[in-house]
Structures are given as structure tokens and as C-alpha cells.
């Protein structure tokens, strides 16, 4: 469990993540990495995962169960056709889960 708590002060890192997705790079600043570590370090129960509907083409959003053998929950009516879109959507969901506020930044690549 991370000690760090994401707050409004981390908003510049959300902007950076959006830019990095657009630039297609995995080289993040230490501050953004810290935010991502908190978001991605959640325990298994309820963790967001992508359910592959068509390999390399289409994904649904799922949430892992707590224990082995239990079914993975599908989040209704959410599907992605590109992985950056999925990363950004889950980043926004986690931002809201962790801070209680909407991020309010438009997703990358939106026409």
C-alpha cells in the first residue's frame, strides 16, 4: 500500500501523462512515475484490467476479483479500440477514485 496520496498538486503529472501517451513514450518524470505507482499498485480485488475481445484490436474493461477461481467482473458498456485510450480512461477513473474529483482533462487523440 502506497504512503503517497494523490492530490490536486499532482495535476501537472496528469497533464504529463496525457502528453506522454500522445508522444507514445514510457519515459516519465519521477513525479509522474510516483502517481502511476500509486494508481497501478492497488491490490488484486477490484483492480482494473483489460479484457481482450479481439487481440490487438478491441478491449473491454474488467475488474479482478479477490481470489483465485472467482469471475472477473466486466464493467458494462466500456470498450476501447486503442490501448492509449484505455490507459487514459483508467487513469481518469483512478484519479476520481483516489481524489474524489473529476480530472476534467480531455483524453489524448480525441478528434
Amino acid at each position: 500500500m502506497s504512503r503517497y496520496r494523490i492530490s490536486e498538486a499532482d495535476r501537472p503529472y496528469a497533464e504529463e501523462f496525457r502528453r506522454n501517451l500522445e508522444a507514445d513514450t514510457y519515459y516519465h518524470s519521477p513525479g509522474l512515475q510516483r502517481v502511476l505507482n500509486v494508481m497501478r499498485g492497488s491490490p488484486k480485488a477490484g483492480k482494473y484490467v483489460l479484457i481482450v475481445r479481439e487481440p490487438h484490436a478491441r478491449w473491454a474493461l474488467g475488474r479482478m476479483p479477490a481470489a483465485r477461481g472467482e469471475p472477473v467482473e466486466i464493467v458494462p458498456n466500456v470498450e476501447y479500440t486503442d490501448l492509449k485510450q484505455a490507459e487514459w480512461d483508467v487513469f481518469c477513473r483512478r484519479w476520481k477514485d483516489l481524489t474524489g474529483a473529476d480530472l476534467g482533462i480531455e483524453r489524448p487523440g480525441r478528434p
Binding site: 514510457y26 492497488s42 491490490p43 482494473y48 484490467v49 483489460l50 479484457i51 481482450v52 469471475p71 484505455a86
Partner: peptide, 21 residues
């Protein structure tokens, strides 16, 4: 669950992964 940090991106669950779960 830490695998997502190690991989730097969301985990993709293919049909085989769901079967293993």
C-alpha cells in the same frame, strides 16, 4: 497485482488468462 507497475501499463487478460483465473 504489482505486475501492472512492473510492466508500466494495464494488464491485458486474454481468453487463456481468464481461463487460468
Amino acid at each position: 497485482p504489482e505486475t501492472e507497475i512492473m510492466c508500466g501499463r494495464l494488464m491485458e487478460m486474454h481468453a487463456g488468462d481468464l481461463f487460468m483465473q
